[in-house]
Design a protein around this nucleic acid. Structure first.
Lengths: 236, 236
DNA sequence: CACTCGATGTGACTTATGGCACGGATAGGA
DNA sequence: TCCTATCCGTGCCATAAGTCACATCGAGTG
């Protein structure tokens, strides 16, 4: 929970920004303008970028590494809304729906971000309806996903949600090899549990069960998916 | 589940549209333009406007009445994402994140809507960055709410979620009187249960318990909140 | 009016999951 | 290198909530 090691500097690598779906379609001129108004931030694993309840109006794009967006209940339990990797954006909520940050963002690995202030974004947005639409699409996609999560919480049991989470992580961070899909998710089982809204123990048992069936192989902060078909079947 | 009784006609009452947060700040010229491209739809209680999986790219604003947005799981169970009343908007997802409708919309009471096609909206959006921002704010607010729902499902028990749902319904549809806040939510307990993601029986028991404690009074498809303070305490 | 059908109450039973309590493994600092 | 803090694995028990099974109620309809 320590906060520290934050460094900022101007000037951000264009190429990585292009990875962000939101910015991928920009012409060079817009890109340069964007580029100029963004600054870079670095965090080490475990560092907190901002806390739920903080004020702040910056939008961040992950350049490298992974972060978790989490919320804490009144009695201290934690729940993860999402894991974000390179090219993904977060912090937009406070931009358009002013108010305190709705989640705490913590680096899951060492990570670097590009950030853009509310003011700069709006200035930069006005002349470019294409980008506005991109943002709308982005938010709409996130909303759709959030609704799916709700449905999963209501309809699926814990093993089902774990299976789904593994497949999702594999989709975004997995590398396919001969022996299966290697997924270095960098999450502890505790964090995985918070992501699917269950206790560490139950998630552990679900994972052990999948492993015993030969569907996955467990590694340190990683898994290898051996039978995605059965996993997917278990997920629905 | 019958689909029917849908009527469309052009020309929509301006005043009701002004209720929609999204359109409230428009100048008369924009309002007229908007007005011209919208058409009106009426439904009777129980009628379905569209089903999950349907194609369709219209945005709707509730003019009068209430609808439920719901999804059905593979094994037929149902879950409600939201109840929408006058001034509220839905169907935006398929606008910005193209794809089939992600929920089924059913009238909970007789209801009328104004609708706007994707095409018309975009045309109308381009010159008006203010509206784009309004839409972004709207979506951001919805996303924030969806995240809250997720947190509730993870952290709260069923009575807690029921209490929260009652307070939320009261906020949006309640009328304060001497003997408490009257809330004609028009939902059966079954629907209420689907809204909070629980079984009808448990919701019924939670309600009975609240009533027995004197916090609420139960009526047909309505409740009177007698002690919002304790309800709120139970909710968190 | 009687009759239905949907909605509502409420108990008994079952089950998934949370919480506790450990022991063992591991890895990152001193 | 050792040592300490985390993380991981797993059994046991308590419990919230789902399911089943009814009784009841009430509003419309013939």
């Amino acid at each position: 929970m320590r906060r520290g090691g934050i460094q900022e500097e101007m000037g951000v690598d264009n190429d990585v920004l292009r990875q962000a779906p939101l910015f991928s379609a920009l012409d060079d001129e817009s890109m340069a303008a964007l580029h100029a108004s963004m600054s870079e931030t670095k965090l080490r694993r475990g560092d907190v970028l901002f806390h739920e309840g903080d004020s702040g109006d910056k939008l961040y794009v992950v350049l490298d590494g992974k972060v978790k967006l989490g919320r804490t209940s009144s009695d201290g339990r934690e729940n993860l809304l999402a894991i974000m990797g390179p090219g993904q954006m977060f912090g937009e909520l406070s931009l358009f729906d002013p108010g305190p940050r709705s989640a705490t963002v913590t680096a899951v690995t060492d990570a670097t971000f590009a950030s853009l202030s509310h003011e700069d974004l709006l200035k930069w947005l006005d002349g470019r309806p294409v980008v506005a639409r991109g943002l709308l699409a982005q938010l709409a996609g996130r909303l759709r996903k959030a609704n799916d999560v709700v449905a999963d919480l209501v309809f699926s049991d814990v093993p089902g949600r774990v299976a789904k989470a593994l497949l999702d992580l594999a989709d975004r961070f997995g590398r396919t090899a001969d022996d299966g899909v290697h997924v270095h998710h960098d999450l502890t089982q505790e964090e995985l549990a918070q992501l699917v809204g269950a206790s560490r123990e139950t998630v552990n048992k679900a994972l052990a069960d999948f492993a015993q069936r030969g569907w996955i192989k467990l590694e340190a902060r990683a898994v290898v998916l051996l039978d995605t078909v059965r996993l997917a079947r278990r997920a629905r």
